[in-house]
């Protein structure tokens, strides 16, 4: 055990202080340069806003744009564990890396197309369950009733818990002998399920965990949406003799759409990219049976040390996600409000 001593505290504070100092100095230098060039030299009308933007712009460039470009560069290299420093870059390495993604197993066994199919299945099942579960609970809660606040608070607990904790706790609870899931099944007279040693059951287990985690977010967002729908629409429909289902279909659903669309996009992107649940509950196992695109990429890079290949693989995954987002945004007009200023 390492005790938390004053030495360690002082070292931490010293390191933060130094970092903040360096960042402040860099910001001041950038601002001064921008001032001299834009304001004094070019007399640019918008020199002040660009000065204000510059630090963030440099930060985003250095830590988002540059790594993005660097990743493309790495995709055209033969970098791996044995060639971490003296790797070479060339078109032929790139072609090999990209072809390897599609023609060889990504890890030891599972192939890209299996992973793609599994990730799509995972995303669809999860998001559908999140929306249905969230919508159901939101509808039940959206009425005058006793204990509404208590229900709402208890129902958001899965979202409020740090994901790492829930995922690791679920891993324990899926233990064949001591986890509560099997203990309860046994009390009900059912046979215990080999949750973590059979690939199919392991996939069911991670889906269950992620559905449990994701419903509260949808519930809260949809409840907000339901509460903003004016009662007058329902009153009018009532007079026209519309049934409950008709009211739901022609009032609730269309008016819920502006809230639902961004929530579904976020849900899809989060679920598609989910790493914690898979990696912490099953590690992608057994026999790579629960690996998704993102976890297999992580493992290819940080457990199999195939850096060049991993970079190419990351590009391929990004392109798939990008195409999906573009198509979805076009079809639904999703983020329209965000940039129409």
């Amino acid at each position: 055990m390492i005790p938390l001593t004053w030495d360690i505290v002082a070292r931490g504070l010293g390191e933060i202080g130094r970092l903040l100092g360096i960042v402040a100095v860099i910001v001041v230098v950038l601002e001064a340069l921008a001032y001299l060039i834009l304001h004094r030299l070019l007399k640019y009308k918008y020199s002040l806003p660009f000065m204000l933007l510059l630090p963030a712009l440099v930060g985003v460039m250095a830590l988002i744009i540059y790594p993005f470009g660097f990743n493309i560069y790495l995709a055209f290299s033969n970098m791996n564990m044995f060639r971490f420093k003296d790797f070479s870059v060339g078109l032929s390495y790139g072609i090999t890396n990209f072809l390897d993604v599609f023609r060889l197993p990504v890890l030891q066994k599972v192939t890209f197309f299996q992973l793609l199919g599994r990730t799509i299945l995972w995303t669809v099942v999860n998001v559908v369950c999140h929306v249905l579960g969230g919508l159901g609970l939101a509808i039940l809660l959206n009425r005058p009733m006793r204990g509404k606040g208590v229900y709402r608070t208890l129902l958001v607990v899965p979202w409020a818990l740090p994901q790492v904790i829930s995922a690791l706790a679920w891993r324990g609870e899926f233990h064949f002998q001591y986890g509560f899931v099997n203990l309860m099944l046994e009390r009900l007279g059912l046979r215990p399920v080999p949750w973590l040693s059979d690939p199919r059951w392991a996939f069911v287990a991670v889906v269950l965990v992620n559905v449990w985690l994701g419903i509260p977010f949808m519930m809260v967002v949809l409840l907000g949406g339901l509460q903003s729908i004016s009662q007058e629409y329902y009153d009018a429909a009532q007079i026209d003799g519309a049934s409950g289902w008709q009211q739901f279909r022609s009032i609730t659903m269309p008016l819920l759409k502006p809230v639902l669309t961004p929530a579904v996009i976020l849900g899809v992107v989060w679920t598609f990219n989910n790493f914690n649940v898979i990696y912490l509950v099953t590690r992608g196992g057994p026999m790579e049976g629960t690996d998704l695109l993102v976890t297999s990429m992580f493992k290819a890079v940080f457990e199999f040390y195939r850096y060049g290949f991993g970079a190419a693989y990351a590009m391929v995954i990004f392109v798939f996600l990008f195409i999906f987002s573009a198509v979805y945004l076009r079809l639904s007009g999703g983020f329209k409000g965000a940039w129409e200023s």
Binding site: L53, V60, L63, I64, Y66, P67, F68, F70, N71, L74, V269, F272, N273, F275, V294, M297, F298, V301, F302, Y307, G310, A311, A314, M315, I317, F318, L321, F322, S325, F335, A338, W339, S341
Partner: peptide
């Protein structure tokens, strides 16, 4: 610029992990 900031949120964190 604003739109670009939204787009960066779409880049999966795992993708920048190796270069960073």
């Amino acid at each position: 610029g604003l739109l670009f900031l939204l787009t960066t949120q779409m880049i999966p964190a795992g993708m920048l992990l190796l270069p960073i």
